[in-house]
Design a protein around this nucleic acid. Sequence first.
DNA 1: CGATATACTTCATCTGTCAATGTATTTCTT
DNA 2: AAGAAATACATTGACAGATGAAGTATATCG
Lengths: 115, 115
Amino acid sequence: MPISADILRGHTDTIILTQLMEKDSYGYEINKNVQKRTQGQYEFKEATLYTAFKRLEKSGWITAYWGEDGPGARRRYYAITEAGRDEWKRRSEEWQKTRELLDALLVMEENHESN
Amino acid sequence: MPISADILRGHTDTIILTQLMEKDSYGYEINKNVQKRTQGQYEFKEATLYTAFKRLEKSGWITAYWGEDGPGARRRYYAITEAGRDEWKRRSEEWQKTRELLDALLVMEENHESN
DNA sequence: CGATATACTTCATCTGTCAATGTATTTCTT
DNA sequence: AAGAAATACATTGACAGATGAAGTATATCG
């Protein structure tokens, strides 16, 4: 049973930013890396991926350029901006907090003694 | 800075189910518990909460009944069904998996030596 | 008596996801 | 050389969950 993407909603942009923190990349490669990192458990739908790029560009967190015309289909590369790095940091910390919140909210409370 | 609710999107139903696993409850109380459990860091918007009840009822995971006419405003209580308990278990496990996925996807890879 | 807390409801709007569809090039297979 | 599969990107319309806003009603506190 695959992970429902609705649960990951809102993390798409952060996942992309994480990879661009390491190096410039393009859609197809980023998606392959997502598959690799999750051992094939998750991948973006193409439409989701490319809408995310638009969103990130409009926000000023990434910039785009066409790759050199080597062999293979033309690639649109993306680079993270300074503002993008700040945003990644913010979101990264937010994820830590979200984890804590959900861990607190999704666990059954055993102890009903003291209240 | 509060947690952006877009990040918790999709977890609303599971958070509610978790509390109904313990005992029957009603909207206002559930929301107060969310605040308590998260030390005031999070709470549902009313509209979010009550649309979630509708959704859960329609799915057959909870049932509703009006509380006894005691003092105070009338309360609509909710109880989790057997199907709801199964669903909670499924979602609970999904959260464990989601955590792992996101931990893998939101961390910068330090080591660029071997590839 | 007015403010505040408790408690629930509905509706219009916004945003992110995604199925469907299309374009184009390269590589692999036969 | 023909056809399939992989690489690579883009757009559009539909859908679902979250939410601001507005409303209803009762109880409590100063």
